[in-house]
Amino acid sequence: MESLKNKVAILTTVANFELYEKTSSLFPEGIRSFVIDGRNGMHALHSIFYMFKKLKKEKIDWLIMVDEDVIFKNSQAVFELIEFMKRNEYSVSGVRDGGAIKHRNNNPYALNTFFSILNFKKVSKLFNTNEIIGNQYINKGEFEEDLSQLVYGFDKRSLYEPYYCFYFWLRRKGEKILFLNSKMIEEENEQISNEVFAPNGTSLLIHTWYARSYGKNEKHTARIDKVLKQISFASNPRKPIIFKDPMFYIKMQIFKTVKKIKMKLS
């Protein structure tokens, strides 16, 4: 197990550091922690591209990608999940963005990025930004698989999230995705948070959603704190390596301005 931990790291793109300081105490122990500072708007596909750039020399075999509003219940079980993925040659695991979560009715063939485990070593060798960007499309019937177990709505043709291209690209490369089971949690007559399970049925974590609202919105702050109070915290807080692209916000503003000009000219 220790030899595996040396090859595993965890990455969070953080928009709310107040919440991260609390939830990161529950991260799997004995592995390196990295943070992408997302307060300048970096997230989703931009974050994925940035992580490959910043982590390519870190000698990481397996990368756990997790949002700061994820609360681990059994963090050590992720190592068993990684071993399962290795044995069965899965390149990535996570929860579908359609059909598995009540308020996510989008594409069931792609993951939601709140939690996933990636064979970083293998995928890094395949990584190609232009190829990935060019995969934001769905061919009718291309990814047909049994979706009968899904209990919520979904749209097989959805391109709702720009980061879908990353998972479509992996699938078209022949890489296998392990879709994890999830169930909604009843919270004062609402269902917002979802619980995620390993293939053997072990409860891994709870995703509370609305990280950006923590500390700002009374309802969501109280709701997340209620989950946190049910978990035993580690004594030592994380001291991650933090990455930030200081020019990201400016680059995005320039990109948007150029796009608007092109649209007007056309």
Rank of each mutant, 00 (worst) to 15 (best):
F248D: 04
V70Q: 00
H46L: 02
P108V: 10
S91N: 14
F255N: 05
N130G: 03
F166C: 01
T202Q: 14
A198R: 11
S75H: 11
F114Q: 00
N107Q: 08
M263W: 06
Q136D: 08
I64K: 02
Y90L: 10
F84K: 15
Q136F: 04
K140D: 15
R39N: 06
A198T: 10
F17E: 10
I60L: 01
F52L: 02
Y90D: 07
G134C: 08
N112S: 07
L4P: 04
L26D: 02
K59R: 08
F27N: 09
A198H: 15
D155I: 08
H207P: 01
I254L: 09
L126C: 04
R223M: 06
R104I: 13
T202W: 05
Q253S: 03
E83K: 15
K183L: 02
T129L: 05
V8S: 01
V35I: 11
N130E: 14
R172T: 02
A77G: 02
Y210T: 00
S24I: 00
G99F: 05
L180G: 06
V196L: 07
V70H: 00
P199I: 12
I36G: 00
S193D: 05
L150I: 12
Y109Q: 11
E218C: 04
S182T: 08
A100H: 03
K86S: 10
A110P: 06
K183R: 15
T221G: 10
E83Q: 13
L118V: 10
I132N: 08
A9G: 01
N88H: 14
N128D: 15
D97R: 09
V123T: 11
E68L: 01
L147Y: 09
K176C: 10
S158I: 11
Y249F: 12
